[in-house]
Design a binder for these strands. Structure first.
Lengths: 333, 333
DNA sequence: GACATTGTTTACTGGTAGAGAATGGTGCGA
DNA sequence: TCGCACCATTCTCTACCAGTAAACAATGTC
């Protein structure tokens, strides 16, 4: 038996003083009302309502019970109501984890505007280049690079692709020569971003041919901004996401090399716990991210679907494959 | 879905921080836990718990919801607990309706002892000779005479049979003569108890022959005690329940007549709303009544079953007929 | 006094809650 | 580093139960 229904039936019957009326009000047939009350009484072992076919009245026990039940039901109803506004308007605290550099170069500036758009929203932004466990640490959303992406039940939304560029200061190239082939890098002073998945081996491609160079260098650092500073100082050469050095390249402070070779890309993802029942506060922040990262793109953002890891489903795994909404694994809408 | 179950599942999961552990605690399988949480979230349109297979944490909404839900569930649990003691020990207020005379002559004296046996019990005893609507007026129990008994869904428990006796004061018989046959009463000054079902026609039986006498008299009164007073004063003759005049007959203040004729009997019933889930306070009072009315009987009380009104049931009305426990109509265990 | 309303009972049925098996994911310990 | 054990989820199946409809009994009213 559904006890919550039974309690609501009891309450209505008690307040309306009629089985039939309660039935009409609740959209239930008279027998259903009878049975609910009878089962409730059976469960409690107490008669709650004295009734003839024409008259009914609560027993003393019924009155006592009603009092407490009413409190309980009201509290539960309030629980539902409290979630109402939260369900529609962004509010509460949004906990976000994001890598330092990309935030400072691409995001940070737009956040005040975002926050003033949603006055009820608080943002708790943790800048951290390590891969946080978003469930354990209670984050609503995290921004990850592709070399940092776990294969989990989380949802990953692609934000941007950051092509890398090989560059150094003009002064460095003058002194040590400009590399003509990837192999030339073996002799160069390569500055390494230690948190990158491809920190020690740089890969280049051309005409379907791939060159993997194990690089050498005296400086390894866990922030791309520090790498940039070292580049600007003419200390060495590095493979770095293009956006981080875009203004430097334009201004001539840095120069690129091996432009005819394809380099790695770092894809940025927004990672969050679930697609279903996405909280508005997460929804709007996600929209904000998508907008920010597609702002100065030549062509609008085109979503890509990341292939799901092979499913060894028992039955015929046909249609479910395409319903990305209910897939728990990584995918991009 | 049973929402109360879902809420309890949610609460356990939140407090134990584990789906599996909650399942073990509640005696449910892991899939059941998952489904309950998922359905609850679906119902609310809000994600309550972020979860991977190894880790789970409440969302902000989940924490807010849990708070209210806990309150609600606690209130409902309290409602059940409150009924616990009531269910076992007699307590609260017992509202009883009883006829004036029988109470004063047979019951009244024993009530203080009854009440001191149950210290938590209050008794609200309404002495009223009319037939009250016990459901409408909120009585827990009523004592009724057989000529007052409705054919309702109430339960009637036989308490005692009160044979009537035709009697008057010796002085009356001296002055007006002692009736030898029922027909002699036509000339007598008959005192009538107006609330009796047989106030105007007195019936006598002998050898299977029945005599119905339409009686005449100058005094009609709605209390048997007043009838007795008039008898004592030698004002007339009356047909009155034997117990009311027992001491008068013994002491010689009144004398009986037509002793070889059978007279009406008034059967006393205790009437109460239902046999199922009989409240202890009613149970003990019923026991008290049975004990009081069988106190000075020569042979112990033998329950009689009153025939149920004919049932035009569709199917073969076979066994249900004997299960008196579930019969709603009048019956005596 | 016939009728209408109300609560209850009975028999039936559609929906659903829970179990079991299989899968994918994760952390711990050897 | 690699199993191993555990965990949440999905899918499928089944048994049960809640609700309905129809019939009935009781009761008050026009």
């Amino acid at each position: 038996m559904d006890r919550l229904t039974a309690l609501q039936v009891f309450r209505h019957v008690a307040e309306l003083n009629s089985f039939a009326e309660a039935g009409r009000r609740l959209g239930l047939s008279p027998p259903a009302i009878s049975k609910n009350i009878a089962e409730l009484e059976g469960h409690l072992g107490v008669r709650l309502i004295n009734r003839t076919t024409r008259r009914m009245a609560l027993t003393e026990e019924g009155r006592i019970y009603l009092e407490h039940v009413t409190q309980g039901l009201d509290a539960l109803a309030r629980a539902d109501q409290v979630l109402g506004p939260i369900k529609t308007a962004p509010s509460g605290t949004l906990r976000v984890s994001a890598p330092m550099t990309v935030t400072l170069t691409r995001l940070s500036a737009g956040i005040p505007a975002f926050l003033s758009r949603y006055p009820d929203l608080k943002l708790d932004l943790h800048l951290d280049d390590r891969r946080v466990d978003i469930v354990r640490e209670g984050f609503d959303l995290a921004i990850r690079g592709s070399d940092n992406l776990e294969d989990s039940s989380l949802v990953a939304r692609k934000l941007a692709v950051m092509p890398h560029v090989l560059c150094a200061a003009p002064s460095y190239f003058e002194k040590h020569g400009r590399p003509k082939t990837p192999a030339d890098l073996k002799a160069a002073n390569c500055i390494r971003f230690s948190l990158s998945g491809h920190a020690d081996i740089w890969e280049f491609r051309k005409d379907g041919r791939s060159e993997r160079i194990a690089i050498e260098g005296r400086y390894s650092v866990s922030s791309s901004l520090a790498v940039r500073d070292a580049l600007r100082a003419g200390f060495g050469v590095s493979l770095i996401p293009h956006p981080y050095v875009e203004s430097d390249l334009k201004a001539g402070r840095l120069q690129s090399a091996l432009d005819d070779w394809e380099k790695v890309e770092t894809t940025l993802y927004a990672v969050y716990p679930a697609r279903q029942h996405l909280a508005p506060k997460i929804r709007v922040f996600l929209d904000f991210l998508i907008e920010e990262f597609s702002r100065d793109k030549e062509k609008p953002f085109v979503p890509l679907r990341r292939e799901r890891s092979a499913r060894r489903s028992v039955g015929e795994g046909t249609e479910a494959e395409n319903q990305t909404e209910i897939l728990p694994s990584i995918s991009s809408p």
